[in-house]
Design a protein around this nucleic acid. Sequence first.
DNA 1: ATGGCTGAGCTACTCAGA
Length: 258
Amino acid sequence: MKITSWNVNSVRARLDNISDYIGKTNPDILMLQEIKTEEKNFPKDIFKKLGYDSKIFGQKSYNGVAFLSKIEINNINLNFINDPKKQSRIISGEINLNKKKVKLINIYVPNGNPIDSEKYDYKKKWLNLFINNIKKEIRKNNNIIISGDFNIIPDEIDVYDAKKFDNDALFKIEIRKKFREIMNLGFNDVFRYFNKTKIEYTYWDYFAGSWQKNNGLRIDHFLVSNNLLENLKNININKIPRSKQKPSDHTPIELIIN
DNA sequence: ATGGCTGAGCTACTCAGA
């Protein structure tokens, strides 16, 4: 099974790119972030024609997450955490994978910049709530896949210039510690699991030729619980969509798991 | 060191992104 995670930076502005991507890579499940629209304006019919069911947690203008899936996703939950700002940042569901009931959690973590603002406090609060609920979840089900835009650079190797990001909400030590905290609950950063020293990014900003200069960040991740390690086949950051006309600033990350 | 670009909502400009 192929599961893709992609921050599309508006599902409606990206319709052609997403459709093209689906045609070329044929994922079973797409986990989208930053759809930037309410459910009523989500292009469900277009995805239906491509063979995908849509499960949506929308929001006007900002945020918003969704699943597109060719297989059944059960027990869709839009309240995995009680978001203090009521923003649409998590959608979860359950799939059957080789006799295992797997919980899929699609997240869009708050950016948190600038760090002297209330936005940074919100990011920390959000991550604390998330970690608390993952702790509870792992007691009930040890088959969990967390994926999405974490807005966390895990390590120096994951950013083109670490010094520039010392005081950035994506790279502050206390934020990276939150990522470690999740790992310590029994999760694995699948990209690093397969690529111990490889430098690859999932995000390049729109400014000043960042893409051309490969000034990127690795902030979109797949974390899987220990119990699923035996099911992992491969992971790939697919840079082609970032090279297209009118791209998202993020590119898809693709997990093969059986 | 800063500013550079893009999208939504809306039609002038702000907010947000990372």
